[in-house]
Amino acid sequence: MRPRPFDFYQPTSIKEASEILHSHEDAKPLAGGQSLIPMMKLRIFSPSEIMSLAKIKEMKPYISETGQILKIGAMATHDMIHRSDVLRNAVPVLSEAAGEIADQQIRNRGTIGGNIAHGDPSTNLSAALLALDAEIEVQGIEGTRIIPIDEFFLDLFTTALDHGEIITEFRVKASPHTKQKFMKVAKSDTAFPMAFVALNVGLSEGFVENARIALGVAGPTPLRALEAEKFLLKKRLDSEVITKAAQIATKDLEPPSDVHASEEYRKQLLSTLIKRGLSSFVG
């Protein structure tokens, strides 16, 4: 299947890109295209205007380290993120999540910026970035602003990005001393995941100092298990606590039902993944 026709723009600067988006209401930015193009081919989604980010000079892919802050350019591919030694050491959950995206070819082409801007609750990186309390730098016609990841996902395929804004960078704090884990259940690599979790837990002498638990395919947006995180604070991760945390994390969820998994089954999977992830941090 092949996409509908569209007008194509290829700006070379962020300024130019913002202006194009500003003056073309239907223009959709195109990064790696690994989510967008399949939808266009199936003609599920057919933007009449496409604006490529490929030739924007400020948007070359990069991963850099400034003190405790790791900066990832929006055009960095999943493969770059997965293979970055810096990220693997400092924020392993992000590296693992990137490595479990679809397949090698898609990881070679897909970008973190496109993945997150898509606003899809089933993208691995959204959960990993939530677990890491990432900040998202966006640029628009009115300049640059920072959106904390917690405020980024508004609804299914809806984000805090204003039309005309482009994600330019992700920032995460290096947290080599926290326990991190990304876990996923999918039927195959070509299938959408049934459930996944990203965990980031700080432990001090066996007690939880801080915890961020992010859930994928758990609702209309990537979600954090806020109550469970709170519950875990100052507790020792024994099996009772872990089971309880998993229960709290999933009890009020309303994950989507589809041909691969029902709401109930997804809840069970999420709960199991949380349990197993947390258990892997002790013993």
């Binding site: 194509f8 295209g33 399949p38 490929a54 070819q105 082409r109």
Partner: peptide, 12 residues
């Protein structure tokens, strides 16, 4: 780098 050529526009 390996990519799926069905998921990229030729102009890109």
């Amino acid at each position: 780098k390996s990519i799926k050529s069905c998921t990229m526009f030729a102009v890109e």
